[in-house]
């Protein structure tokens, strides 16, 4: 009997979109994250779970090109084909990629939005960054994206300070997705939101990721969020990945002592 996994059966694109190799970052003596390696495929949603201080956000910042890892490499599939080490290119190129190829939804909307620029301006910024110079078309695109994240387009000229927490998060998502990125990073996207608001946001993210075929990396300490949104899970403890695999398998049949502790510490995920 032959056991063959033919990549052609596993989606149209046989190459990973992001490849992390031995990514490590240290804060002096202390480990931020160490020895993290994985491949992310187009359309795949990877969850990174662990408690506060486990290195989730440090890893995310390295993967998203914000902080340079002290060791290891992060490679991204270039549009022209081939994998590009995002820290070997100039900062200028990396910043350009960060504005077009991927996007970050921050835990705190203040880190991801311009609070004193209107919702339309926030969404339109990435379009203007890439050189769009037609006001009418930029505005139409912004209104369209507001509707897609379930914000009344009639509020296009309101500023984020006038929005609720849930709306601010949805605005961040629109601001990131408007430029058609292939990969989205989310750092605790539902942190600080009411449970009912969380559910709405999670459903929106789930639908957008599926409809747009996005790859996503979602950092969360909430296992219920991980189960609902992610295909695959990495469990981090003290900066290292202790277990990874299919999300429902890691949560329902955890192998590592730490994962068993984590999954038993909640009532149901």
């Amino acid at each position: 009997m032959t056991l063959a996994v033919n990549p052609a059966q596993l989606g149209a694109d046989p190459a990973p979109i992001l490849s992390a190799g031995d990514v490590s970052r240290f804060y002096g003596e202390r480990i931020g994250c160490a020895g993290v390696s994985f491949d992310l495929w187009p359309g795949e949603v990877l969850g990174i779970v662990g408690e506060s201080g486990s290195g989730k956000s440090t890893l995310l910042r390295c993967l998203a090109g914000i902080d340079r890892p002290d060791q290891g490499e992060v490679r991204f599939a270039g549009r022209a084909g081939g994998m590009l080490d995002i820290f070997s290119v100039s900062e200028q190129e990396r910043r350009a990629m960060m504005r077009t190829e991927w996007g970050i939804v921050h835990q705190n909307p203040r880190d991801g939005l311009r609070m004193h620029v209107s919702a339309g301006g926030n969404v339109g910024e990435r379009l203007m960054d890439r050189g769009d110079r037609h006001y009418g078309r930029i505005r139409a695109a912004a209104a369209d994206w507001l509707a897609r994240v379930e914000i009344d387009p009639g509020r296009i000229d309101d500023r984020p300070v006038q929005f609720s927490g849930g709306m601010q998060q949805r605005l961040q998502i629109a601001r990131v997705l408007v430029s058609g990125p292939r990969l989205v990073f989310m750092d605790e996207p539902t942190g600080g939101l009411d449970v009912s608001v969380q559910a709405r946001l999670l459903d929106l993210v789930r639908v957008l990721v599926r409809d747009l075929g996005l790859a996503a990396i979602i950092v969360t300490h909430d296992l219920a969020v991980a189960r609902l949104l992610t295909d695959r899970l990495m469990v981090m403890k003290a900066g290292r990945v202790v277990e990874q695999g299919l999300t429902d398998q890691v949560l329902d049949d955890p192998q590592h002592p730490y994962t068993q502790l984590l999954t038993s510490a909640i009532l149901s995920a």
């Binding site: 056991l3 063959a4 295909d231 299919l246 999300t247």
Partner: peptide
């Protein structure tokens, strides 16, 4: 194809 669920990568299982 024939796929071994016990050893296939997550995306293959999905």
């Amino acid at each position: 194809e024939v796929i071994d669920i016990a050893s296939a990568p997550p995306r293959a299982v999905l």
